[in-house]
Simulated scan of single mutants.
Amino acid sequence: MNSLSFLATRTLFAAVLLLPFTSQAAQIPSFKATFDIWVLGFKIGQAHQEMNCQNGDCHLSSEAIPPGWAKAFINESAIEKIHLKQSDEDFKWLEYKKFLTREYDDRTEKKTYTLIRREDLDKVEYVEDKKFWPNQKQIYDVISMAYGIQYQVINQRPIDNIYLQDDKIQQKITFSTINESDEIDLPFEEAVQTKLFAFHNGKIEAELWLLPELNYFPARIVILNKDEDRKIELELNHKPTFK
């Protein structure tokens, strides 16, 4: 190799080293899934969850309407709609809307909760009550939290800076258990190998089981609301359908 060719090769090699490193993140695909809902040891209904993504624009919905007989245990039903943006950088929460219905003997109450990431104000806004919180990078409502953790896990990214947002508080969650192997039984399969994550903040204590064989899809989540002293468990009752 003559000196001119050697110099050109060295220059090209140096230029390649200076190029920014890019990698394509693993994505959570669009899906449909159904979870059994357990309260006080009783199965009181199902939650139907669905996420549709097009070019990274994702819409996640959850519908939980207990049957009539279950009103002795829980008198509310909820439809929740969440807007997220999925990219190689993150799984970004943008908006949450909840349509809540409470049934009483003499009346029915309906209420809407809307939480929006306001980039123009660098805040998170609770629209109906005009409350504001800081615009944290990783923030999720109680429904999208499981999928936010899933995204971080499948991309081997840290989960030490995640915040839970609802209409009352915004609070960082702390993990006490991370990626611990655990075998559980599910309605559609026994002795399923999962990874357990346990976390808490001032409002909740939670446990989340993810399925490695299904791209770490959530299999079970147990949430204790400390304020109401009420524990709710969602358990995947069949394998999700991926689109």
Rank of each mutant, 00 (worst) to 15 (best):
K168R: 13
I28W: 02
L100G: 01
D122S: 12
P218G: 11
K98D: 10
I178T: 13
L234T: 10
D129K: 15
T11I: 08
F188Y: 15
Q24A: 11
S62N: 12
Q150L: 05
I139W: 01
G68F: 09
I143N: 13
Q150E: 09
L4S: 11
T241R: 04
K131S: 07
K195I: 07
I79W: 07
F199Y: 14
V192Y: 02
I173R: 02
I65D: 08
K97F: 00
T174R: 01
S87A: 11
A206Y: 13
L60Y: 01
L17V: 06
F132V: 11
A78H: 03
Q86P: 03
K131H: 10
E207G: 01
K81M: 09
A64H: 04
L12D: 02
M1D: 06
K85N: 12
P158S: 12
I143E: 06
L84F: 01
Q54D: 10
G41Y: 03
K97H: 10
K168L: 13
E63M: 09
L196V: 00
T114K: 08
G148Q: 03
I178M: 13
H59C: 04
E128D: 15
H83T: 14
I74F: 13
V222L: 08
E80K: 11
Q49G: 14
K130E: 12
K203G: 00
F99Y: 13
K137G: 04
T108A: 02
I154N: 03
A64N: 11
N225P: 04
A14F: 07
T194D: 05
H83E: 14
L236Y: 02
L40Q: 10
F197Q: 04
S23G: 02
P66R: 05
